[in-house]
Structure formats: C-alpha cells, structure tokens
C-alpha cells in the first residue's frame, strides 16, 4: 500500500531524511521508533504532504501511485490520514461542522454526493461512542480549550469518521493518561482491518502494548537503521537508544 523509496528531505539547508525505504502492506501495523530528533515527525509530515519540507530525492507511492507531488488535501482524499502530535485549535468551528466539511470535501473530490444530514448524524453518533466521546464535546470549537488527552481522542475520532486507507499516528500516546490511552488504542484496533494500514510513530514502547505492531523500525539520524518484529520494541524499552547510536557511530 505505502511504498517509500530512497526518500531524502530537507528543511532549508538541513537534510533531515537521508534515504528512507519503507514498505507497508494492507492489513499491517508498523511502528517507527527512534530517539528525539531522528526525523520521525518529519517523515510523517512528508508522507502527508507538508510543504515546509523539500523532498530532494526519492518517491512515495500509495497503491502504486506516486503521491509525492500531490497537495496535502489530495493525499487526504486518496486516504492518507495523519494524527497530529499537536492538533490545531480552530475557534468558532465546531467539531461536528469541521468533520462535515472534511467528509463532504473528500466525497466531492472523489466524485460522490454529499453525505445526507441524517446519515452524518448517525455516523457521528456511532464513532463518538467508539471513542467514548460525550455528545456535548462535539459542539465545542475544534480543539479549543481541549485537554491534551481530549485532543488526541478527537484526532482518532476524526480518523474513525474519515476511514483512511493509511493512518499515521504521530506520538499519539504523548499526553495521554492510562485510561485515555486504552480508549484511544481500543478505537484504533477496532478501526483496523485487512484493507487499511497503520503506521505508529512513537518514542516509547508503551502504546505498542495496546496497538501491537507487525513490524518495528528504528529511525536514527534520518535513516532506518534497524527493522524487526514487535520484540525489537521491547529491546529498545529495556536498553534505550544508546546502543543503536553506538552501533551506528562505530
């Protein structure tokens, strides 16, 4: 589904990604781990099309289509979703209205009719129950005054509403207490199917106890330096990242 080939990217003069290769198939969960500053968030932003970064080399394919030149919204319309580490506050626009706009713009781009209002309400009810979100919450301004946990839960609620092919969860566990973490992970697991794929970006192994990955990759200094199964996450949890750094610098 997602195929990244020799991806190099920089911001200004600084090269951040130095040749990333990654293959994610439908039905798989991949975890990308690594120390701070390794380029994890950059990678997720670039897959989603953030124009602040310049891709200097390499390609990103989604279902065999090169998406590296597409605008962020075009990638979203094709099924790419990025759960933000720091979701943005939008005063005066309710969660419901934001979702209505996002869904209908996506449908429009894909040549579909707008979702009828009653169906929209039904889906909203269903998905908010899945994330244990209170109805009152949905009429509040998007992310404005939300706690860290509420913001993250709201991101996964949006993921549930948009049903993406490829979901990238960027540090979704940061700022979550254990109960919220369980709710969010439970939501993600219920959304998982053999037709979609999930890439979890995280510094800690904690989230991976709940969202169990098929593959774990270690990103260091702009490159994937190690890949393995879920046991690699445990190894990292035990030993930290220093041995990776030492291995690389040796």
């Amino acid at each position: 589904m997602l195929s990244i080939k020799n991806l190099h990217a920089s911001i200004g003069d600084k090269e951040i990604l130095k040749g990333i290769n990654l293959e994610v198939k439908a039905g798989e969960i991949h975890a990308i781990m690594g120390p701070n500053g390794a380029g994890k968030s950059t990678l997720s932003a670039i897959i989603a099309g953030n124009e602040n970064y310049e891709v200097t080399q390499g390609e990103i394919f989604l279902d065999n289509e090169d998406i590296s030149e597409l605008a962020p919204e075009e990638r979203a319309h094709k099924g790419v979703f990025l759960s933000f580490q720091y979701p943005v506050e939008i005063p005066g626009v309710s969660v419901t209205n934001f979702m209505r706009t996002a869904i209908n713009e996506t449908r429009k781009a894909n040549g579909q009719e707008e979702m009828p209002a009653n169906e929209m309400l039904k889906v909203i009810r269903e998905k908010s129950e899945l994330l244990e979100i209170d109805r009152k919450f949905l009429s509040r301004s998007l992310n404005e005054g939300f706690s860290g946990g509420e913001k993250k839960r709201n991101e996964i609620f949006q993921m549930a509403m948009l049903e993406p092919k490829l979901a990238i969860l960027d540090e979704t566990d940061s700022g979550l207490d254990i109960d919220a973490l369980r709710i969010v992970a439970n939501g993600v697991n219920k959304l998982k199917s053999d037709k979609n794929a999930i890439v979890v970006i995280t510094h800690y192994q904690r989230l991976l106890d709940y969202i169990v990955p098929d593959f774990v990759h270690v990103l260091y200094n702009g490159k994937i330096v190690k890949s393995g199964g879920k046991e690699l996450a445990h190894e990292l949890e035990e030993k930290g990242y220093d041995w990776i750094k030492q291995e690389q610098e040796a």
Partner: peptide, 14 residues
C-alpha cells in the same frame, strides 16, 4: 501555516 496544513490534511482544500 500549521493550521492550514492541519485542515488540508483532513481533506479541506486550500
């Protein structure tokens, strides 16, 4: 710009 990217990421055109 971050807010723009956020909304575009959710499929809302520029």
């Amino acid at each position: 710009e971050t807010a723009m990217f956020y909304m575009q990421q959710r499929g809302i055109p520029k």
